[in-house]
């Protein structure tokens, strides 16, 4: 395994992107960073700029308005980077299935690496998903 990839799995900085969620998933993401769960021990830091990010945490339905923006934010992220879809809405459409403002799902717009289901997923679930993704990345190298 290369040092570069090992370092990437040891310090993934995440950028939090909401593409039209009801805010529940966002609150659960912020929960992960609280002292009780403390993601910083895995090196995970929440950053404010997509330029610093290694992982996009996408929550919520992909609405028409946010499709363009989500693509732009993905292009702003320096590669290599991963996309994590969080919540039932970002997996399919959840309870909003068939809505006229959401023609596409998140994975039709962005290349999603891992899905974390739940409405909203528990912080434990999010941590488990991220840990699985990191293991996957380490094995891929």
């Amino acid at each position: 395994m290369g040092l570069k990839l090992k370092a990437l799995t040891k310090s993934p900085w995440v950028y939090h992107l909401s593409t039209g969620s009801c805010n529940n998933c966002d609150i659960e993401i912020l929960d992960c960073l609280t002292p009780r769960f403390d993601l910083e021990r895995l090196g995970i830091v929440l950053v404010g700029s997509p330029r610093h990010a290694d992982a996009l945490l996408v929550t919520g339905n992909m609405t028409i308005k946010s499709m363009k923006r989500a693509k732009e934010v993905y292009n702003q992220m320096p590669k290599p980077g991963v996309v994590i879809a969080i919540g039932t809405c970002s997996l399919g459409h959840g309870v909003f299935d068939g809505s006229y403002v959401m023609p596409k799902t998140v994975d039709e717009v962005l290349p999603v690496d891992i899905y974390i289901p739940g409405c909203p997923p528990k912080p434990e679930g999010i941590i488990a998903g991220v840990a699985k993704l990191l293991t996957m990345l380490r094995q891929k190298a």
């Binding site: 570069k4 090992k6 370092a7 990437l8 310090s11 090196g43 290694d54 590669k79």
Partner: peptide, 14 residues
């Protein structure tokens, strides 16, 4: 080693 990993990771990025 966290600061070291951060620096190495950033060095390897675009």
């Amino acid at each position: 080693l966290q600061p070291f990993y951060d620096i190495v990771k950033l060095m390897g990025k675009e």
